[in-house]
Amino acid sequence: MSAFLSQFINLLAAILLLLAFAMLSQRRILSLIHLFTLQGATLAVSTAVVGYATAQPHLYFSAVLTLLLKVILIPLLLHRVIDRLNVRWDLETLINIPTTQLAGIVLVMFAFYLAQPIAQISATIARGTLGIALASVLLSFMMMITRSKAVPQVIGFLAMENGLFFAATAATYGMPMVVELGIALDVLVGILILGVFLFHIREQFDSLDIRHLEKLKED
């Protein structure tokens, strides 16, 4: 495999992290969905490139799957959800954005620190990508924590899955097809359930603020 391809995968990994970071500091739901779509597209391209570089045709298939699911289907669903719920605007976050960003930097450092020994012994295409994938997973997780509304949390969950998927393809050349299909289905079912869940929250509380869920606990 050429050095150029591995550099290209590294670049895609960096873009993935960049998008995860951008999502962390984004207030608007609409922009969040756009960023998520971009992330899905990056993921599809990187999967295809890994497939080409390692001559594993089944990765092409999962690239196409990613494209269909994460670039077209889920964003469409999300757009419909926010249209129906009428929540397209700025949302306040639980922790202010600069603090979140600083915490994000610490997370990135932590992830890189964890991944460094692996990067040194690993022999796969792009050695450093595991750290980046880990960092994107942590950043998405963090995004879920800091948002008070349900829709950004769903997007955070999906972005986290993107990070995991990237780790699986770039660091270990993909999982068996069955597992991948299973995960894809899981995500789809997950988003449907979450969609239903969202509508129910709104029916119940007339708002999507998940802080209302605190009222559900028994005293």
């Binding site: 550099q7 590294n10 960096a14 992290l17 960049l18 970071f21 500091s25 954005i97 600069p98 960003q101 600083l102 994000g104 930097i105 990135v108 450092m109 890189f112 991944a115 460094q116 990067a119 792009a126 050695r127 450093g128 750290g131 980046i132």
Partner: peptide, 24 residues
């Protein structure tokens, strides 16, 4: 604006971190 430029600052720092991780 501090948020905007703070993002720029942190992105540049992440760039340097990525550089150190990947070695390129």
């Amino acid at each position: 604006v501090p948020e905007f430029l703070g993002s720029a600052f942190l992105l540049a720092v992440i760039g340097m971190l990525v550089n150190i991780l990947l070695g390129v």
